[in-house]
Write a protein that binds this DNA or RNA. Structure first.
Length: 289
DNA sequence: CGAGACCCCTGGCTGC
DNA sequence: TGCAGCCAGGGGTCTC
């Protein structure tokens, strides 16, 4: 579910709730994709919360004089913040609220994840990038190291389709199916073209458009397709601004030929749907054909 | 190195 | 209304 903009939006809300707080206790009711570490309570309870950051789709919550919590929301994960009620019923976890963290102001931070594709793990402070899940991640597209030269170096020898290459978290950390489709549409590049067939100019265009799309999505509060909501429980609005994702058969804004052109097309690549406009994003080179 | 299949798991929607 | 089948925003592992 959550791609970079959704994670960023959730993390903003979560950071506000965590700022200056201390963890009183943690409770794990069910394991996630990987078992939540047995020593979570031992290492986290009583610790004051430090900086909260994001790396691709991972949220990193550092604990002072303690480890760093690594949280990935998978497909269906979300964060539920439950402030201490003035009066009335006590906190009750939701059906799929598998982990709860009680803060010193009575707020509960819940990790809700019906499909349990997400995870909560611990990394050693100061060596987070050495963690097995983080060490092979590529550049985060909102960080300065991400630019045309970086992207070109990562793509110019890749024989995979550009769509698949951009989904590879080792190339760029944070993109998912929705935003790759939107980025390639904006850059007017066919998702089936081989990454190695793209010119420097085309890659530079992708490098320019990527942070633009992500920042716009963050500004809109992310994309809500099914049950995504931010840490306050509010849905995003960027799905209304999707130009191609989920719009098979609909006209693309750039296409004067609709309906004769058939509108937005959908193809399956590596098991994931790709949406594109065949006129704006032509297949092009012989190498790709 | 890359493609594709399979796996993790649940809920929502569609069509019969 | 019931139910089977398909689909989904992620990603790790294995084989070819």
């Amino acid at each position: 579910m959550p791609e970079l903009p959704e994670v960023e939006t959730i993390l903003n809300g979560l950071s506000a709730a965590l700022a200056g707080r201390r963890i009183i206790s943690t409770e794990v009711r069910r394991d996630l994709r990987w078992p939540v570490p047995d020593d979570l309570s031992i290492r986290a309870d009583g610790k004051k919360i430090g900086a909260t950051t994001r790396l691709g789709k991972y949220m990193l919550i550092s604990l002072m004089r303690g480890p760093t919590l690594l949280i990935h929301l998978g497909m269906s994960g979300r964060i539920r913040i439950t402030p201490k009620p003035e009066k009335g019923p006590a906190y009750r976890p939701l059906t799929h609220e598998h982990v709860s963290i009680l803060l010193d102001n009575g707020t509960y931070i819940g990790l809700v994840d019906p499909r349990r594709f997400g995870c909560l793990l611990l990394a050693d402070a100061g060596r987070e990038r050495d963690h097995v899940l983080l060490r092979s991640l590529g550049a985060d597209p909102l960080e300065p190291e991400f630019d045309a030269a970086y992207l070109y170096a990562r793509l110019n020898r890749k024989r995979a389709p550009i769509k698949t290459a951009l989904l590879d978290q080792r190339v760029i950390a944070g993109l998912g199916n929705i935003y790759v489709c939107e980025i390639l549409y904006r850059a007017a590049i066919n998702p089936q073209r081989l990454a190695s067939s793209l010119s420097m100019d085309e890659i530079a265009l992708i490098a320019r458009v990527t942070p633009e799309v992500l920042r716009e999505a963050i500004g809109a509060g992310g994309s809500t397709l099914r049950d995504y909501v931010d840490a306050q429980g509010k849905p995003g609005a960027f799905q209304d601004l999707h130009l191609v994702y989920g719009r098979e058969g609909e006209p693309c804004p750039e296409c004067p030929g609709y309906p004769a052109c058939g509108g937005i097309r959908r193809v399956v690549q590596s098991g994931r749907s790709s949406f594109f406009c065949p006129r704006r994003q032509p297949p092009l080179s012989l190498e790709d054909a």
